[in-house]
Design a binder for these strands. Structure first.
Lengths: 243, 243
DNA sequence: TTTCCTTTGTCCGCTTCCGTACCGACAGCT
DNA sequence: AGCTGTCGGTACGGAAGCGGACAAAGGAAA
């Protein structure tokens, strides 16, 4: 597609904006490198910036008062955060942190707010992304309720794979356990299952996807629906799907 | 509060709108009675109307291709549906149906869309509600992942209680099992636990809240956070909380 | 090389919850 | 009254996953 190079953005949302909209805030976009585990947003803290990712993966996590936590969504170059900003809300109960290091453009919340209210086209697109992320959340809730750990892990690896260049996802078991809200040894066991079926290759700190189609089959109905919906809403295909 | 009678609406969102905004679409509001288990919206079907509830409870459910399902949100006089309409999306993957019979005002989607783009105040409020519902979804996902069935049941009863007049919630075990995505006998057992602690009274087709404070204590961190956030976002207190 | 820390692998007993099945109780109907 | 369908209670074996603990292995630093 010509407009990839035209705009130079890797971010799917920014790429889909017409030039006339982009010029409104392009100069306010600040490119930054976000290191792993950097906290982009803390619960109930007003957010100074919104982030559009060019690479890497961010993770939206909800925490209960007693300290239990679960991931509810992941964001890569397919999107931005926080979506609360799109809805005109200054702070939310989520914490967002970088799961895999990457680059992002950030923009002051105040500028984003102004652009959203001035430019219908920008608002429409970002609102549609907000819906896409809500759908992702919904399927996460479903998965948490009805799927087994190995299926959820497969789903999660696929979602990361969609947002990464290449086959490697560099994360520790401990970290994945937090994301899936399960015990760490359960992740080890589940990874062994996937590895035994030659769907992935797992070594210290890294999971490599070896057979994506097989992984999708293994995940059964845990994976796929919200990716289709993303495609429908944003008009861009998510990741490296082979189906 | 004086403005309750001024507007005559029970719906918290409609009540919070200034008169100047209400007049824009008041005449398009059609009051209807929605019977139990009536389907307000089906997956991937464009929605003709948006609903603002005066009483009763609607339930947002997500379904996987293989037929697994889980409730991700409930809506009473605290809100409206579908929120996709607020985000400018014509259809979503959810199915929304009436859980407890009640009254609602409905408005054609096209009219809502027009009002949203013309009236900043309306848009702001409804967008904040969209965020509130997203937060509810997020806590549901967390609860599905980390809480035990009896805690989740307690949470769910409290959320229904918030949206109902009186202490009775009329639903079968079968139905609650679907909502919580668990086995029907598990609901029976969990209800017995709550009844044993004198927190509820349960008979055929009805659950009555007997000790709300106790229920909240039993639910621990499963209940409360998203209700607080609703209060902060909408400026109205949800339900009959005694805390 | 040795030390230390992080990450991963494994084990055990225990609890929760599922799948399935069956029976009794209630309510509406004829 | 008796029939029938819905709803609720119970039981039992088994699987999945937890809590907790500990040992091996890889990597980094001294």
């Amino acid at each position: 597609m010509a407009d990839v190079w035209q705009s130079g953005f890797q971010n799917y949302l920014l790429r889909r904006l017409p030039q006339t909209s982009l010029v409104r805030f392009e100069t306010y976009l600040e490119r930054i490198e976000v290191p792993r585990s950097h906290q982009l947003s803390s619960p109930h803290q007003p957010m100074e910036h919104a982030y559009f990712f060019e690479s890497g993966i961010a993770s939206v996590v909800i925490r209960s008062p007693e300290g239990q936590h679960s991931e509810i969504g992941i964001i890569g170059r397919d999107g931005m955060c926080p979506t609360a900003a799109i809805l005109g809300v200054d702070a939310d109960p989520f914490s967002i942190h970088m799961q895999m290091q990457g680059d992002a453009y950030r923009i002051p919340s105040s500028v984003l707010k102004a652009v959203l209210s001035e430019d219908r086209e920008v608002h429409t697109l970002f609102a549609r992304y907000t819906q896409a992320l809500a759908v992702q959340q919904a399927y996460t809730a479903l998965s948490n309720a009805v799927h087994h750990i190995d299926e959820r892990l497969a789903r999660w690896i696929l979602m990361c794979h969609d947002r990464v260049d290449g086959e490697d996802i560099s994360l520790t078991h401990e970290f994945m356990a937090v994301m899936l809200a399960v015990r760490r040894p359960s992740v080890t066991t589940a990874l062994h299952v996937l590895e035994g079926k030659k769907l992935i290759y797992s070594e210290r700190g890294v999971v490599s996807v070896r057979n994506r189609t097989g992984l999708e089959a293994f995940a059964r109905d845990a994976y796929g629906e919200c990716e289709k919906e993303y495609g429908r809403l944003i008009g861009a295909s998510l990741g490296q799907s082979t189906t």
